[in-house]
């Protein structure tokens, strides 16, 4: 069964590629065509209508900026193979490339990307480094959203660092990914999000069960939470816990629909069509 586009479940957290230097990490090499074929089969199996694509954030870049451009171009090529299913691209730029990364922010915007994503503990600088403020300042001017992983005990991607960025740029939409990876981490990100209305979070990698979802909705309301699967290229998934938990959380149908897809489309500007 193929889910209808422009409605239904929206997965805001899919990676294209694999990770290196990370024990037990996901993903595998594949041609783009095979990647998209397997990815769409995964989405269909779980009733996911659409997804935003971002890269894996631990990759080899001996050519520096040129490698990052090539990585982002891969996302765009992937999107071109199924544009109705992948309506949003969230590229990346490397903080360690310094201010020279601003040119790639601008190139991604011109190519139609919806935002920029990071996984700072794989990218070597703190989320609140001055380079990051410069990058997000340019994104703010261009209307790009910022998606940043906030894995528990992530050090460079700690929730308080994201809060500093989100407070500085109140017009920019920030989405914290992987934040429900410990009770303490969720408490920290919720505390930040309560104070910073442009900060949202996803369900990905949750270890907190339905209690995590309920805590988010109780403290932030249903509009600040989005569904994500954390799918990597050629991933094999027999269960999708984030989706199962969303349906088991006891929320109203309207709230479930918002978290399952409506919020993501609104934040990405996809709900106007």
């Amino acid at each position: 069964m193929t889910a209808p586009a422009n409605a239904g479940i929206f997965d805001i957290h899919q990676h294209v590629g694999k990770l290196i230097g990370i024990p037990g990490s996901g993903g595998a090499d594949a041609t783009l065509e095979k990647d998209v074929k397997v990815r769409l089969a995964f989405m269909d199996a779980f009733g996911i209508a659409q997804a935003a694509l971002m890269p894996g954030h631990s990759y080899s870049s001996p050519a520096g900026l040129a490698d990052t451009r090539a990585l982002n171009d891969t996302l765009l090529a992937c999107q071109a193979l199924a544009p109705d299913r992948f309506p949003a691209i969230i590229g990346t730029v490397e903080p360690r490339h310094g201010l020279k990364s601003i040119a790639e922010v601008e190139r991604l915007h011109a190519a139609g990307a919806a935002g920029i994503s990071w996984h700072h503990r794989m990218q070597g600088l703190p989320m609140d480094h001055p380079v990051m403020f410069a990058l997000v300042e340019r994104m703010d001017a261009l209307g790009l959203i910022a998606m940043a992983h906030c894995y528990a005990n992530g050090d460079f991607e700690a929730p308080w660092r994201l809060r500093r960025l989100a407070e500085r740029f109140p017009r920019t939409t920030f989405i914290a990914l992987d934040a429900q990876t410990s009770p303490e981490n969720l408490d920290q990100i919720l505390g930040a999000a309560e104070a910073v209305p442009n900060l949202h979070l996803d369900l990905t990698s949750t270890v907190l069960g339905v209690a995590g979802i309920r805590a988010c909705v109780e403290r932030l309301g249903p509009t600040r939470l989005v569904f994500g699967s954390n799918y990597y290229s050629m991933g094999v998934r027999t269960e999708l816990e984030e989706l199962e938990l969303l349906h088991a959380a006891g929320l109203s149908d309207a709230d479930t629909a918002m978290i399952g897809g409506g919020n993501a489309r609104r934040l990405l500007g996809l709900d106007a069509s």
Partner: peptide, 11 residues
């Protein structure tokens, strides 16, 4: 510990 790498291995 932190050095810019925009030109990759050249840097």
């Amino acid at each position: 510990t932190y050095y810019q790498l925009a030109s990759g291995v050249e840097d």
